[in-house]
């Protein structure tokens, strides 16, 4: 087995764009679920809106990169308002169903052949002109990064530079918000909505602000995915990606500022490592073909995700670094 290549793949993945995307998506969920107690199952919808906002802004409507980013932000806020105004009064399980359905509606619209003129249909939007071109032109790096075991292409290097800056900003914003009076109210809503209301706070407005901020984090994750893959593809925003983001959040610990990043590093690192080990063992013939073949390796990682999510929730709902007292999960 080529351990050098396995370690190289894993280390490159630890700082790669997937970690960035999962961190950002989970940071959004951290605001929604970890701090406010909103059970948002439609984070994939916010991610899709971010990705398509930028991709459609440039390719379909011919905006510049900066304008397209503003368009994506406006699009996200609009979604949060549309989603939030009617649903934030709902009970946790109803909110979950409504948000997952909204995410699916968005994905089906982005996928649909009827709108493919604007959205690219099920093939996704690679864009003509290429929507990543302006972003690529801004790339300050002259070549790929090849330091020791880590290898990153010029484009990905630029994407993750922007991505990690966003993650750092996100951490700072989350930390500042949560030690502010605003954050205390938000956490109060999570613990006892009625108590906060009785203190004269407008619970609905606070929830809405939380939904918008968390949604913007999700949209940022979508933008990173679209830039890294050079395409906005509807199937990158299937409901399961919301659940993967939840796994990330719960791994690191909900209601912890660094939880999502730690969770994303562990999540992606473990998946890439397991994948590489299995493929290595496969090519060495260590795993007989009647156990599994090359196609089945891809499924093992998802099986593991499902298992980890279940076990985490049963045995350690506060995650690896979380504080059990912070997390009042029963929202009924």
């Amino acid at each position: 087995m080529d351990w050098g290549s396995i370690i190289s793949q894993t280390l490159s993945a630890l700082i790669g764009w997937e970690v960035v995307a999962y961190s950002l998506a989970a940071m959004g969920l951290n605001i929604h679920f970890g701090y406010t107690g909103l059970l948002n199952f439609g984070q994939a919808g916010f991610m899709a809106v971010g990705a398509y906002g930028v991709a459609m802004g440039i390719s379909t409507f011919g905006l510049s990169l900066g304008m397209a980013v503003l368009f994506a932000i406006a699009f996200t806020i609009l979604l949060a308002l549309l989603l939030g105004i009617p649903t934030l009064r709902l009970r946790a399980d109803y909110l979950a169903i409504v948000t997952i359905a909204t995410g699916e509606i968005l994905r089906l619209f982005f996928r649909s052949a009827t709108l493919s003129e604007w959205t690219g249909g099920s093939d996704g939007l690679q864009g003509n002109p290429l929507f990543t071109q302006q972003f690529k032109n801004l790339n300050p790096y002259g070549g790929p990064l090849d330091v020791g075991p880590i290898f990153l292409t010029q484009h990905i290097l630029w994407v993750i530079t922007v991505g990690w800056v966003l993650v750092a900003l996100g951490i700072l914003v989350t930390w500042l918000l949560m030690r502010s009076p605003w954050g205390r109210v938000i956490k109060g809503i999570r613990e006892d909505e009625e108590a906060v209301r009785s203190l004269g706070k407008n619970v609905f407005a606070y929830k809405m602000q939380s939904l918008i901020i968390g949604g913007l984090f999700g949209a940022a994750a979508g933008v990173i995915i679209a830039l890294a893959a050079s395409s906005a593809n509807p199937d990158n925003f299937a409901p399961q990606y919301t659940f993967f983001a939840y796994t990330v959040l719960l791994l690191g610990g909900a209601a912890r500022v660094f939880g999502p990043v730690v969770g994303a590093v562990i999540f992606v690192g473990a998946l890439v490592f397991v994948d590489a080990i299995l493929k290595g063992a496969m090519s060495d013939g260590l795993i007989p073909t009647w156990v599994m073949d090359g196609d089945q390796v891809g499924q093992v990682r998802f099986i593991l995700i499902g298992l980890v999510l279940m076990l985490l929730m049963i045995f350690r709902p506060q995650g690896i670094f979380g504080d059990k007292k912070e997390l009042q999960l029963d929202a009924r």
């Binding site: 059970l39 946790a92 399980d93 979950a96 659940f243 939840y246 796994t247 719960l250 995700i305 499902g306 298992l307 980890v308 999510l309 279940m310 076990l311 985490l312 929730m313 049963i314 709902p317 999960l329 029963d330 929202a331 009924r332």
Partner: peptide, 12 residues
């Protein structure tokens, strides 16, 4: 175990 936690278990 809370119902929301159990709901996430069903997702897993």
């Amino acid at each position: 175990t809370g119902l929301v936690a159990m709901m996430i278990v069903t997702i897993g």
